[in-house]
Design a binder for these strands. Structure first.
Lengths: 201, 201
DNA sequence: GGGCTTGTCTACCGAGTGGTAGACGTGCAT
DNA sequence: ATGCACGTCTACCACTCGGTAGACAAGCCC
């Protein structure tokens, strides 16, 4: 009916698809569901993305780009090692607050195998390199405990993503979880946790 | 054809279902697939578990029981704070080594919402209480950095489960991952990470 | 030997999935 | 005015899924 034009539709579909994939998982989400949430029929969605897999790839790329921008922006003007680390964590938590399905989508991307996550990390590759150099420099300067920087980066990733995605576990363990206040408490906890993991002995 | 008897079949089905749910996710795994992997037809599976959901619940309970036994056994005879913590991590990593889909299944359980994970943690409840008391005692004794013990337990959970389930991410970040040697290296890294997170300032 | 429970099967169904074929209308370029 | 690419739709297909109905066979109890 109304021709909303191409690029806007595309963006809306990707955003909704990330929500759906994050909430229901790749297999659990259906094209019908995603399309009608945007107000169009499934066949129109398939006009933009010829297959479900193509839609997923577009989502992965968009997600990578988004998180890349967010982190890059957060890093601007930060000087000390600790300011930088904290800024990144804060940026990711902020993204999760405004877009709760986002971390779940990233985790789902990891579940789908190497091809999937590589599409995502590909858009972040420069950041990854930068992060590893950052950690290595910190170790050389004696500001960070000496260890394998890549594995440390991985541990930091799991700590942040885990504390964002395992909310139901948190609920079962802590007994209370809902709401923004809890998210902020978790952020403080992650920050403290990471800080003490980075500090040299 | 051959009547293999009840309880053994049941166990085999649960074990295979945990594998399938862990690998493909709840939605992605099909009853047909699970049944024929055990050598029977789907309808026979439905004789043991009337619905897919019933099968899932049985898996959750079994998984909880298994991990509970594993940890309880690992804790026997451990005395110091650090021995205990390390023993638990080692036990979980050992379980993951012999049964790679197990951590993935636990994570999937968390994704399915509160009802799911509670079925699982229900079987571990005593251990949870024990762990929190343990952490609290450690803090009181000045052996562990002071903080909210429940949140700390949650952080430990995400660190361990994350480092076991996000293998594809690790691969993308580190560049190499396969094999038993890598799992052991990751275990050492988690142990070091946790240790430094626990140490009081 | 005859019923009864237990286990396994074949056959089938309704719903939902990802994807194809193609009609139709609107606006821009010529 | 006409042609054509773009966007959206209806109709449909092949397939898979979870689940039902019911036949059937083997062991057990009496």
């Amino acid at each position: 009916m109304a021709r909303t034009g191409g690029e806007k539709r595309r963006h809306a579909l990707i955003e909704e698809a990330i929500r759906a994939f994050g909430r229901e998982g790749y297999n659990g989400a259906s094209l019908d569901q995603i399309a009608s949430a945007v107000g169009i029929r499934k066949q129109t969605l398939l006009y933009y993305f010829p297959t479900k897999d193509a839609l997923l790839e577009a989502c992965l790329q968009a997600a990578g780009q988004r998180v890349g921008e967010e982190i890059t922006e957060a890093l601007e003007g930060r000087e000390t090692y600790w300011e930088k680390a904290e800024a990144v964590i804060h940026a990711v938590f902020g993204l999760a607050e405004e877009w709760p399905e986002f971390p779940m989508f990233v985790r789902e991307a990891g579940r789908l195998g190497a091809e999937g996550i590589e599409r995502f990390t590909g858009a972040i590759e420069p950041l990854r390199v930068r992060a590893i150099e950052f950690l290595q420099a910190g170790m050389d300067a004696g500001e960070i405990r000496k260890q394998d920087p890549a594995l440390l980066l991985f541990m930091l990733y799991t700590a942040v993503v885990g504390s964002l995605t395992e909310a139901s576990v948190l609920n079962a363990v802590v007994g209370e979880d809902k709401g923004r206040a809890s998210l902020h408490r978790r952020e403080r906890e992650v920050v403290a946790f990471v800080r003490s993991a980075l500090v040299p002995t």
